[in-house]
């Protein structure tokens, strides 16, 4: 571990913490524009976070310590996953702590705690949301793992930093298997981030909400942490997508100049990605919940075919 490694690690964490709400704001802004509304402004997520942190946090009488703990666990999981994803540089001292498989585990842990906390209060909506969330989760995880495995097969490593180093800094090669993995990854990230074809992030309608039902009982700083964790999750998923499929611009180890250039590159890629997300969300209609298994089965299938294509066409 050296100074430049520490610096790039620190930069990566700070970028995630500060830019994640901005990305959410950017997506919401574009969603509003595309739907002919005037948007709430790019900085709205920051204002909401400040408001929620100032407000008093009200907890139900029947809540156990688990309920108070869950927001911190979720936030911690998301922050750690943002720290090990190579967003700006592949020189991350924390990255040996968790590889791609552990990353999926981190997402799963956050999800399990949120689901348990939602059930903890004992309201009907909480357990309804928790069940739906776990339904989506158990279908999305194998697909996400297969996507990451496809990338690992190409670069012979499950560490995200090494995958990116292999993809970004070698000769340019077109990988057909990554095309399949890319589509599968898009489908999975819509499901995991509670985006429109699967779940509407702005709805509060009992029958259709999945994610909102989970956090209905939270308020004050707990809700702020959860909202921040949701933004971090969107940021983390966008960065995994960018790192696997558009890895150009991410700095190597021992390259301070590239590290400075990596920041505008990442902002540019995230801006385009956020716009595309808003566009797809506007163009799609929300699915019935019983269509979701079919949607995620397609994602899993695409990812598996990606792996098979890798073996057939070689590299």
């Amino acid at each position: 571990m050296n100074l430049s490694g520490l610096l790039s690690q620190f930069l990566a964490i700070m970028a995630a913490l500060l830019l994640a709400p901005l990305l959410t704001g950017w997506v919401n802004q574009w969603r509003a524009w595309l739907q002919n509304r005037s948007g709430p402004g790019l900085l709205q997520p920051y204002r909401m976070l400040r408001k929620l942190f100032i407000k008093e946090s009200v907890v139900a009488e029947s809540a156990s310590p688990l309920f108070r703990m869950a927001p911190y666990v979720a936030f911690g999981c998301m922050l750690l996953s943002c720290a090990i994803i190579p967003t700006l540089s592949t020189d991350l001292p924390l990255s040996p702590a968790a590889d791609a498989i552990a990353l999926v585990g981190l997402f799963a842990m956050a999800r399990v705690f949120m689901a348990l906390a939602a059930m903890d209060i004992g309201t009907a909506f909480g357990s309804l949301g928790a069940r739906r969330e776990m339904l989506i989760g158990f279908l999305a995880e194998p697909a996400l793992l297969s996507v990451l495995f496809t990338a690992s097969l190409i670069s012979q490593s499950t560490a995200l930093t090494e995958i990116v180093e292999n993809l970004a800094h070698r000769d340019f090669v077109l990988y057909p298997s990554l095309a399949f993995a890319g589509i599968a990854f898009c489908l999975v990230s819509f499901a995991e981030n509670a985006r429109v074809p699967v779940d509407n992030p702005t709805t509060h309608l009992e029958l259709t909400m999945i994610h909102e039902a989970l956090i209905l009982e939270y308020s004050g700083r707990h809700l702020a942490l959860i909202e921040w964790a949701i933004s971090l999750k969107l940021f983390a998923y966008s960065c995994i997508g960018l790192a696997l499929f558009f890895p150009w611009g991410i700095a190597e180890a021992q390259a301070p100049v590239a590290l400075i250039l990596a920041i505008p590159a990442m902002l540019f890629k995230l801006a385009i990605g956020g716009f595309l997300l808003a566009l797809i969300e506007t163009l799609c209609a929300k699915m019935r919940i019983f269509r979701v298994p079919e949607f995620l089965a397609t994602a899993f299938l695409m990812a598996v075919i990606g792996m098979l294509t890798h073996f057939l066409l070689g590299s």
């Binding site: 090669v173 077109l174 057909p176 298997s177 095309a179 399949f180 589509i183 397609t298 299938l301 695409m302 075919i305 294509t309 066409l313």
Partner: peptide, 16 residues
Amino acid sequence: TQLINLFAAVILMLAF
């Protein structure tokens, strides 16, 4: 040649 492989993958994707 890589492009041909990519087209092949797209054809399979469209078949699915």
